[in-house]
Amino acid sequence: MGLIVSILVLSFLIFFHELGHFLAARFFGVHVERFSIGFGKVIFSKVINGTEYAISTIPLGGYVKMKGQDDSDPTKVSLDSDSYNMKPPWQRIIILIGGPFFNFLLAFFLYYAIALIGANDYAPVIGAVQPDSPAQQHGLQKGDKIIEINNQPIQIWDDLSEAIGASNGSIEMLIDRNGTVLSVTVTPKVLEVKNIFGETVKRRMVGIGPSGEIVTRSYDPIEAISFAWNKTVEASKMIVLSVEKLIEGVIPAKEMGGVISIVQVTAEASQHGIVALFILTALISVNLGVLNLLPIPALDGGHIIFTLYEMIFRKPLNEEIIYRLTLGGWAILLTLMAFTIYNDIARITNG
């Protein structure tokens, strides 16, 4: 069942990405010759209003084939008015951005749904107090629930972490201890800790850890908009930062995962309920949006760079250069795909 859910999630993500390109193309009057989910041999297709809607054998991607655009041969062009390459550069850029934009839009919708269903977070309840820490020195105890920090209401553990990190000097904590509300003044220490990328960073901390207690927060339809926006932006920044750390070598290349990892993790998430599945799907959708905007010739980002060149210099890039760069882009993508699949298999083999 998990495998079926994973395939459906991937197919839907691909469909939504290509739908962005498709709708933008149709809006600007570009004829779409084929809208395919998957690559390879077409196993099912139907022509509606001149567009072939197809499902292909390899469900690891998809594409919208527009008139006048052919990634397999960038030198093929059409001079018809409904051709992609005859549209103004700014319209082509919007068509190219349409796919990634729909990935971010889908993530927003998923986070919005999560907000309405109820988002799970750690409760601001102390589960551990480090020895010789400011928390211990000022009498904080396991089981204390943090209500406020510097008059700022604390609802989840992340609120607590952010409030401490953004504070200056001592902080006033309002805590609930077995039904009794107490006020405690604590002076955080700046300590060296490891971030999620394994880097050593300095943070203001008081020396407490969460109890693991979960609190579910539901939002009204208006509040859910802010929640969805913040989560989409947060996820986008995280993916961009991850790519940056990968290029810098902070994240080892062996940590890269491919389609097998995506299927495995999605299958696991589906077993933990709809909220977990929505969270992971939103993150994968943002991932697709960001990665497709990378300036690699075979991706949307690469085509955007070509089009920006045309806008700036008032002439298209040489066809031979585009052709060679596109081949190089495909070589990079296929190499990355093979490498990530190798990593996935190695992880499975090593347990």
Rank of each mutant, 00 (worst) to 15 (best):
Met1Val: 12
Leu3Asn: 15
Leu8Arg: 10
Leu8Tyr: 08
Phe12Glu: 03
Leu13Gly: 05
Ile14Pro: 00
Phe16Thr: 10
Ala24Trp: 01
Ala25Met: 08
Ala25Asp: 10
His31Ala: 00
Ile37Asp: 00
Ile43Phe: 07
Val47Tyr: 02
Ala54Asp: 01
Lys67Met: 12
Gly68Ala: 14
Asp71Cys: 05
Pro74Met: 09
Thr75Phe: 06
Ser81Gln: 13
Ser81Pro: 13
Asn85Lys: 11
Asn85Val: 09
Lys87Val: 04
Ile93Lys: 09
Ile93Ser: 04
Phe108Leu: 15
Ile117Asp: 03
Pro124Glu: 03
Gly139Arg: 05
Lys145Gly: 02
Asn151Ala: 05
Gln152Cys: 02
Ile154Glu: 00
Ser167Phe: 07
Ser167Cys: 08
Gly169Asn: 07
Glu172Asp: 15
Thr180Arg: 14
Thr185Pro: 00
Val190Thr: 14
Asn195Tyr: 10
Val201Ile: 13
Lys202Glu: 14
Val206Lys: 01
Ile208Tyr: 00
Gly209Phe: 06
Glu213Ser: 07
Ser218Ala: 14
Tyr219Asp: 08
Ser226Met: 10
Ser226Gln: 11
Phe227Gly: 04
Ala228Gly: 03
Lys231Ala: 09
Ile239Cys: 01
Val240Ser: 10
Ile247Tyr: 02
Val250Ile: 13
Met256Ala: 15
Gly257Ala: 13
Gln264Arg: 12
Phe278Arg: 03
Thr281Asp: 06
Thr281Ile: 06
Leu283Gln: 14
Val286Asn: 03
Asn292Cys: 13
Gly301Cys: 13
Tyr309Asn: 07
Ile312Tyr: 07
Lys315Tyr: 02
Leu327Met: 14
Leu336Arg: 08
Ala338Thr: 12
Ala346Glu: 11
